Computed example of a mutant assay.
Amino acid sequence: MTIDSAGDLVVLLEFSASDPSQSISNALATSLPRPTLDLDLIGAGYGRETSLERRAKLLADDVAAAGETGVVLAASCAASAMLIPAATRIARRGTRVRLAAVDPVPVTTGHIRHTLATIAGTLGIGGAGPAVEDLDLGGTDEAVLARIEALLGDWVEVFLREAAMDPEDQELIRSDLLDRYLRWHSFLIAARDVPAQDPACRVEVFLTDPSSDPAALFASRPSVRRHRYPHRDTAALERADLLDDLRTTLISGSLRPAG
């Protein structure tokens, strides 16, 4: 029996703190014919959870609340690490699932250090390189998050002192920045070095980076279809050719044979 997956609920897994050029919802805007469910992987609802399995359960709860019989989960870059854990949990509840990933990359210790360096730049922290490179990222997840919290806390204090804000405003910003940054790193810690998993559903992978290796996340199975595009100095989600194919996949569930 052939099951028509057109009309499946589109669920976008994204980071609220990411660059707009890495946001699928931003790229497709209003071009999808039906509402989507946008789930912020570092949203307050997921807290500072460092267990990928518990995160997957919380995400599956959010999807189940929509009451759909079929969903397509889509993510780009590091958010793609959440696709199979979430799909596994969702499928256990009897919901039909398929996946779409744009330039998926596994989360590594290097990714965490890069994110810390990016935050340091955003806060205007000069000379942060050695502190980032020397930070001990070994041990339990709780210990790693505590070290990251201490480092970020120092940076936020420097940022607030130089901003010369009112004490009341400083407290609000201190709390907001630290919480957001720690929720971001909680996800990265949870997803760090997750081994490749065999998908039990169809996966459409859209690749613009020649060095991308989908097998690092999705293993190598016939259900994983790769769609490669000529490399350009343009963000993947700013390319019309890729977006046209991604939109077709999300809407109809079908796409031209992979090249």
Score class of each variant (00 low, 15 high):
residue 170 Q to I: 10
residue 198 D to V: 15
residue 202 R to V: 15
residue 240 A to F: 11
residue 259 G to V: 07
residue 69 T to C: 06
residue 157 E to F: 08
residue 183 R to I: 14
residue 237 L to P: 04
residue 35 P to Q: 05
residue 136 D to K: 07
residue 214 P to W: 04
residue 119 I to H: 00
residue 94 G to A: 03
residue 30 T to K: 12
residue 255 L to G: 05
residue 177 L to I: 13
residue 120 A to R: 03
residue 167 P to Q: 07
residue 119 I to N: 00
residue 204 E to G: 11
residue 106 P to Q: 09
residue 135 L to P: 01
residue 124 G to A: 08
residue 89 R to E: 15
residue 60 A to S: 14
residue 166 D to V: 10
residue 168 E to H: 07
residue 110 G to L: 04
residue 50 T to I: 15
residue 69 T to N: 05
residue 89 R to V: 13
residue 205 V to K: 01
residue 160 L to Q: 00
residue 223 S to K: 01
residue 250 L to C: 14
residue 235 A to G: 07
residue 225 R to I: 06
residue 28 L to K: 00
residue 37 L to Q: 06
residue 250 L to A: 09
residue 23 S to D: 08
residue 74 A to I: 09
residue 118 T to E: 07
residue 51 S to A: 10
residue 129 G to K: 11
residue 146 A to V: 06
residue 250 L to I: 08
residue 144 V to G: 04
residue 181 Y to W: 01
residue 121 G to S: 02
residue 189 I to G: 08
residue 152 L to C: 05
residue 90 I to H: 10
residue 158 V to N: 03
residue 191 A to R: 02
residue 156 V to W: 00
residue 195 P to S: 09
residue 155 W to H: 10
residue 9 L to N: 09
residue 252 S to L: 14
residue 13 L to C: 06
residue 83 L to S: 02
residue 184 W to M: 13
residue 156 V to P: 01
residue 85 P to Y: 11
residue 165 M to P: 00
residue 157 E to A: 15
residue 11 V to F: 11
residue 116 L to P: 00
residue 81 A to E: 03
residue 214 P to C: 13
residue 9 L to C: 09
residue 14 E to C: 10
residue 258 A to K: 04
residue 1 M to D: 11
residue 235 A to F: 06
residue 255 L to M: 12
residue 185 H to Q: 11
residue 164 A to D: 10
residue 145 L to S: 11
residue 212 S to R: 11
residue 126 G to P: 05
residue 188 L to F: 09
residue 210 P to Q: 08
residue 37 L to V: 08
residue 151 L to T: 14
residue 31 S to V: 15
residue 96 R to A: 11
residue 176 D to T: 14
residue 123 L to V: 02
residue 146 A to K: 13
residue 2 T to K: 04
residue 107 V to K: 01
residue 84 I to K: 06
residue 231 H to V: 05
